[in-house]
Design a protein around this nucleic acid. Structure first.
Lengths: 337, 337
DNA sequence: CGAAACGATGCAATCGATTGCCTCGACGTT
DNA sequence: AACGTCGAGGCAATCGATTGCATCGTTTCG
């Protein structure tokens, strides 16, 4: 059916081994220019496509990397995947995208399937702060790079947004507008993003010499979780905060619903800042101020790191990429007391 | 390094061939139950993972399918990919997602790469009405199923939304509200979606005994294209339409911007209907009425069709999945004349 | 009791590409 | 003229799993 190396060799009148060397740029110097030309011509004429399965079996490299994503329908991830592909493709690698659905069992299964496929490395967007599976993989020297989220195990390389700078910019912006009582709708503390932004919030408030306002913890990065934790935040003792920084945009949107239900205006009564800069934010009824993270670059940098790592193991690097506050209509000076 | 079949066989005290038969449920009946148990136990104990490259080389199946997507960052596609994965995964297949960026050259390259990887079949979301590459692949009996978009070549199986019903619902809704002069902001006519919705618009208007209002053609399904074609539509001769049906949501959003710039209100001056039901539409400043298409089901059905096709070639089926009009605030009765 | 039948398992070829090693011939050197 | 050197290319093993065929021992039946 398909054209094989032997077919090409026969057509060019050489041994398959010779044809292989002629076709591979790295070994081409080992055959005479005339032979190389004949083989290349024959390959072109026959429409030869090397069988990657056979090659991978022999060379123990599949030129495949696994991309573990918690939920592809979350718009945070597709640009990361594209960034990864943009770097991996030209290097001859293909990315195998796997959706874990935030399910540990599925994750375990998918990792096994990808290792059975001899994936050469992994880009992982599903890291939790405590993640035994990843620890085991790191132990086994499986090349991998975490994206967006990291683990507490600093032995695993990662490319993540600079959350500290992002949160600091958000707090700075609100303080400059005149806010003093600022709350935090924190994300899941089992994830580096949720935890990192929470810590960064406390630090940034301290830098300004301010007491942190009410804080509530959501147990997922979803609108629903944002609503229930948001309720806890609004119910907290003491005066209502004049501004809230949310762990991400979805949490912020959940809180926004709640404010509407309670007859409160955003930004009139409460200013709100999100995180991630979800694509359609500027068209919302209340355009949300948010911290943008360089998704594509995160993916691209992670892929570059992974390529290096697959070429030769090195020390685990952690890369922080800059974030930027996008100021929209959900933040304004606090109402006069 | 990795555990191979021979390792398992040795541990179980049998020949690799026997171990292979014991491990494969389909051939397990050919070994004695006791042996099967021993082999399974050994495989578990050693953590054996079959090398899919080796298996694929021998069986000429890679258990991989290529998923061709024009742009993964368009929220239309991720749910389709998930639907595909949900069906393919349990069947033992992995999906290799490839982004073509709407670029024919890239598409050709990616197809070649996937065929080199011995992909067993393809899910294709990048079809154009005239698409020689797909024609060639169909000619070569490569198993494939188109999703969302189809080609004019009906020899290729496809799973697409029922655009005729969707557009008919949209027109019916507008007519019921009292609109008579209805325009169409059509998508690219080189795509089945753009063309199909345009034809469906003409037909639906005729069913109601109405002349179609002004029509403009966008050359891409983007907000920018929606703005420029939208301008042409507003500039068209004759009275302004009281309602417009757009080829998809992004075109509608482009037109919405334009209306705002022109000081026109939606739905006060012009009602607007989109297509695809982009996820954040309900939270927009003007929540957009849109035709929802069952993205996940499209992916899942396509995957099922592809599995059938890979098992045994059959006649090309075309599947139409039902759409649903989601009524929001961008449609209202026309202003009194 | 012997032969046919059958169940269980071993044997070895095979998929297609890569690569270490060997051979062969041409050329240069002394 | 003999020998060493070197470049080109052929040979065959190899990666790991699958599978048609052969083999061997046991059972069954006439």
């Amino acid at each position: 059916m398909a054209v094989t190396l032997s077919d090409v060799a026969r057509a060019a009148g050489v041994h398959p081994g010779t044809a292989s060397r002629a076709l591979n740029p790295a070994t081409r110097a080992r055959v005479s220019p005339a032979t190389a030309r004949r083989v290349l011509a024959a390959a072109n004429r026959l429409g030869y496509l090397p069988n990657s399965l056979a090659r991978g079996l022999r060379t123990r490299r599949s030129y495949t990397v696994g991309i573990m994503i918690p939920d592809l329908t979350n718009p945070l991830f597709p640009p990361i995947v594209r960034g990864v592909d943009e770097v991996l493709g030209p290097a001859g690698y293909s990315g195998l995208v796997a959706n874990t659905d935030n399910d540990e069992g599925r994750e375990e299964l998918l990792f096994a399937a990808l290792r059975a496929r001899q994936a050469d490395g992994f880009i992982v967007a599903t890291a939790r702060r405590h993640h035994p599976l990843l620890d085991r993989m790191a132990e086994a020297d499986v090349p991998m790079v975490l994206v967006n989220r990291t683990t507490d195990n600093r032995a695993i390389p990662a490319v993540i947004p600079d959350e500290v700078a992002g949160v600091r910019a958000a707090v700075g912006h609100l303080v400059a507008l005149g806010h003093r009582r600022i709350g935090h709708l924190a994300g899941p503390q089992g994830l580096s993003t949720g935890h990192g932004r929470y810590r960064a919030f406390l630090d940034a408030m301290a830098e300004h010499g301010l007491e942190p306002g009410p804080i509530a913890f959501a147990d997922a990065f979803t609108e629903a979780a944002g609503r229930s934790a948001g309720q806890a935040l609004l119910d907290a003792a003491g005066p209502r905060p004049t501004a809230v920084i949310a762990g991400n945009d979805l949490l912020a949107l959940g809180l926004l619903d709640l404010l509407g239900d309670a007859g409160l205006d955003c930004p009139g009564d409460v200013s709100l800042v999100g995180f991630n800069d979800h694509p359609m934010l500027s068209r919302m009824a209340t355009p949300l101020t948010s911290v943008r993270i360089p998704q594509r670059e995160i993916g691209a940098e992670a892929a570059r790191l992974l390529l290096d790592l697959m070429a030769e193991p090195g020390p685990p690097k952690q890369l922080l990429l800059p974030t930027r506050l996008i100021d929209r209509a959900s933040t304004a000076p606090p109402a006069a007391q």
